[in-house]
Design a protein around this nucleic acid. Structure first.
Lengths: 256, 256
DNA sequence: TAGTGGTCTAGACCACGGA
DNA sequence: CCGTGGTCTAGACCACTAG
């Protein structure tokens, strides 16, 4: 029984100042679970302890742990499997990739992307990149340009910026030998899990270099997707400019 | 105490066939609540009965009602307000509109849209419209074309198709005198609440008529948004083709 | 002060997966 | 068969709002 997290349980909610910000027990448990994930106590794909074990560890009831896990499951940070246990989500599972790559074919079946790495080099962050990644201008970043094909058709050009300090050893060779999703690589090799991303979409004319890669004429309309990805604790760890050719594919979204 | 919904409570989950599809009590309650909403028992903006009242009505515990309401609140169909009650969501609240109109300015503050109705006429559904709205080709639909401006700048052209049978009396005059959101009008005047929408985004060159309305040159890249909106029970009730000018605005999205 | 939603508990039992 | 998550209950108490 591990008590290190809370020698005197967690802050008892009963005895608190009326004026203090009220934080329910299950939210505190949620934070403790997030911290454990951040520390790497459980890795993507791992099963975490059972609800009763966690309840003992945190000195709360199983129902309270359950509610904390409910929230993390709703955020797709944890995944519950009845009869088996609760697991740390991983981008290696196709169901997760599906959430982050939102291109679907206008007709026909969805098909896995074929990725070709065109560039990978270290450089210094300009003001825009630095601002997005919460770095200082001039800090080291890894720049990756890649081309995605579906059924052999060039469809997406991605320009990706990652903080160099977090991904030491990420080279062309490493990227090329990885045949799964990029986020899967970042997870297993660097221990960084992407949990959320904000995207901004615009229609833009194709620049010359992108047009060449996609085998289209210059100035043809492309869907440009600017993405900032976050890991636990809302820490931005990736800036990505995507150019999507949407003749045969579309970006799907559900409003609720 | 109203028992009409369930003279013999709801189906007791304890005594069911192992092979039968298992539906937890709280899901059955959720369905009953949805049916009540669909019947119009509570209108958008209304407060629904308290959790304890509903528990008595359905012969279940308050906790079970609570879980049903939790789900409907997560879907933004109901809205909980601590200390006040639980309310039926309405598109008149700005917080809801914000979820369905996802354009944000590249810089500066968000600003309300000014809507100008350009067309409103009844016509017959072609195959594409009929398929999207689950109608037969040739069924009556109402076609609306409108222009949205932000700070006076023409930014969005929407072509909207609605089943005529559901929106009898929806005319140019009705649309013009309505100064709130379209979905608010459909709610209060026709009792149809939009609960969910699926969108498909592409980059396309501006057609001539749209370019004129947006005051841009022909073939300039536009973000085209095809939307199908649903009311309770996954019933499609609106097909909308939007053309967004994304020079000063972008479509925002969060991946989780 | 009353009424609403929100939290937390303890316990019983069911559904599911795997040994 | 056991261990996991999933459901349901009853009851106590807290937090928020409004009259």
């Amino acid at each position: 029984m591990d008590l290190t997290d809370s020698p005197s349980p967690v802050q008892a909610p009963a005895r608190r100042e009326q004026t203090a910000a009220f934080s329910p027990l299950y939210q505190q448990i949620r934070q403790l679970l997030l911290q454990a994930l951040e520390k790497g106590e459980w890795k993507p794909g791992d099963m975490i302890p059972s609800e009763f074990d966690l309840a003992r560890r945190f000195h709360v009831s199983q129902g309270t742990v359950r509610k904390a896990i409910d929230e993390l499951a709703a955020e797709h940070i944890l995944i519950r499997r009845q009869g088996k246990g609760t697991f740390v989500a991983t981008h290696r599972e196709p169901v997760v990739r599906f959430r982050f790559l939102r291109l679907s074919p206008s007709d026909g079946e969805a098909v896995p992307a074929e990725s070709e790495i065109l560039w990978c080099r270290k450089m210094r962050a300009n003001a825009e990149v630095a601002a997005a990644l919460d770095l200082r201008s001039g800090d080291g970043v890894i720049y990756i340009r890649r081309l995605l094909r579906f059924r052999g058709e060039p469809t997406v050009v991605d320009d990706i910026y990652l903080p160099a300090s977090m991904f030491k050893g990420l080279t062309m060779a490493v990227l090329t030998e990885n045949d799964g999703p990029l986020y899967g690589l970042l997870e297993t090799r660097f221990g960084v899990s992407m949990v959320r991303a904000d995207e901004r979409l615009r229609a833009v004319p194709a620049a010359e270099d992108v047009a060449q890669l996609l085998n289209i004429e210059c100035n043809k309309p492309l869907l440009r997707v600017d993405r900032v990805s976050y890991t636990y604790g809302d820490r931005a760890v990736e800036l990505r400019y995507g150019h999507y050719l949407t003749d045969q594919y579309f970006y799907r979204n559900t409003l609720m």
